[in-house]
Amino acid sequence: MKTLRRNALSGYSWLMLVFLYLPILILVLYSFNDSRINATWTGFTWKWYVSLFENRQVMQALMNSMTIGVISSVIATVLGTAAALAVKHYSIRWSNIFNGLMYLPIVIPEIMMGLAMLVLFSQVQMELGKVTLILAHVTFSMPYVMVIISGRLADMGKELEEASQDLGATPWETLRYVTLPLIMPGIIAGFLMAFTLSLDDFIISFFVAGPNSTTLPLYIYGLVKRGVSPEVNALSTLLIVSTVLLVVVAEIFRRKDSKNNQSIF
């Protein structure tokens, strides 16, 4: 009876894992299918990937995504790290207020953030393009950077910083020689998360992108609206593979030397 129940639970859980991964695996599989039109498997091919790399629009979208991703995640990481370092010194009341404001973008429907920024950019008459995309991406990824780095700082406690000051290091020397080296894995994890979020974002980019700043997800959306094609499969596969790699590497960095192994999402 007990084992039956346990087997049922384990079977159900594996089924859920299959539910989560099967569609993704099928998508990846079909990006290697020779046939263009239907779902019948006609043979293995790399040709859809080759054609992607020969497609100037795809390459342009990839370049846009990379540029926007790198610039926005650098800014988000710098601002988020600085904010996390400061908030640590606030009284409980002020840090609650500050965190409340910072984490609000995580709980607001994404569509609202997108259109709110569209309204802002049109009011200040900023032309939609790479700059507006970067501004938007920093705004939604900074809170995640802050969450990760605050976690790391809380994990570190205040004793080490006190020890450093006790040994004659000024607050800036303490930051430079003790705090920053110790939270570096968190900073790297935060950067990778911000980059992943930027690379992956569709909803907010959809509102604030201009005609010459199409990112990969926006390009994929354009193709998806026109129907299923092996090129979309291949492009989606590339996006999936890079996301998975980035997330796994970020997780490794986040857990590095950290007492806190609780996973965030």
Binding site: P217, V224, T243, V244
Partner: peptide, 12 residues
């Protein structure tokens, strides 16, 4: 899967 793009997952 949570981190993989919504759009791509719906498309699958």
């Amino acid at each position: 899967p949570f981190w993989i793009n919504f759009l791509v997952r719906s498309y699958a």
